[in-house]
């Protein structure tokens, strides 16, 4: 099964499932950061001469810091994401799924200079298209990955129906599928919902509409409390 996940086993016996981020989202995140940096620099170039006078040198320093330490600072102290990455739900992590370390962040950002070669991040783009886990050269050297951040899962409301115990015992995956079905019921057309539900044959009863039956089971799973 083709997918874009990276699974990392932890010493504590559970598995991290990381959703790797590829070039399209990352390029857009970079563009957002570029705009932010340019805006900051523009604001400084207007305000600095007023405030301290003769700001050319200071401006150069500001540019230098923005270019090299803007990403590092955000990646290390703001949950692994620059504002641009945050806007697209991205975060930088170490290969083992742990938060990116300072050294790794510095490495991957200094090596942006190599990714930039020969022009406009062409090496970085090709590397992302070719390398495992969509890594650019800096990621390869620093041992980092860029992933989609998981949002803390708040389950949506499900349509109310009289609770019904399932006819067979269900494993975790199956129970999850039934809850998903109930949550997404509203986005499916009525015919399609019944058609999808009709595949769960062991749970259905003769004569009862399949989608309603599954909704009842979902309500039972939620402890009979319609939310």
């Amino acid at each position: 099964m083709l997918d874009t996940l990276r699974r990392v086993p932890t010493p504590e016996g559970f598995e991290l499932t990381l959703r790797l981020a590829g070039p399209v989202a990352r390029a857009l995140a970079y563009a957002v950061d570029l705009v932010i940096r340019a805006a900051v620099l523009l604001a400084l170039s207007i305000s600095l001469p007023e405030l301290v006078g003769g700001g050319a040198g200071l401006l150069l320093i500001a540019y230098f810091l923005l270019e090299w330490f803007y990403p590092v600072a955000f990646e290390v102290w703001w949950g692994g994401a620059t504002p641009g990455k945050r806007a697209f739900g991205l975060a930088v992590l170490g290969d083992n799924g742990a938060p990116v370390t300072f050294g790794a962040s510095v490495t991957r950002n200094l090596l942006r200079a190599v990714d930039f070669l020969p022009m406009l991040y062409a090496f970085g783009l090709v590397s992302m298209l070719v390398a495992r886990d969509f890594k650019r050269l800096g990621d390869l050297a620093a041992g980092t990955i860029v992933v989609y951040r998981d949002r803390p899962g708040v389950r949506a409301a499900i349509p109310a129906a009289p609770p019904l115990a399932p006819a067979v015992s269900l494993n975790l995956e199956e129970r999850r599928a039934i809850l998903d079905f109930a949550e997404r019921h509203a986005t499916l057309s009525e015919e399609r919902a019944d058609e999808v539900a009709s595949h769960a044959t062991p749970l259905l009863r003769r004569g009862a509409p399949p989608a309603r039956t599954l909704l009842s089971i979902a309500n039972h799973q939620r402890g009979g409390r319609p939310i």
Binding site: E174, T187, R192, A197
Partner: peptide, 16 residues
Amino acid sequence: TSLEGWDLEIAFRRLA
């Protein structure tokens, strides 16, 4: 997939 619940259909097929 999201419009027609393909992933759900496959999960239910597996269940069956």
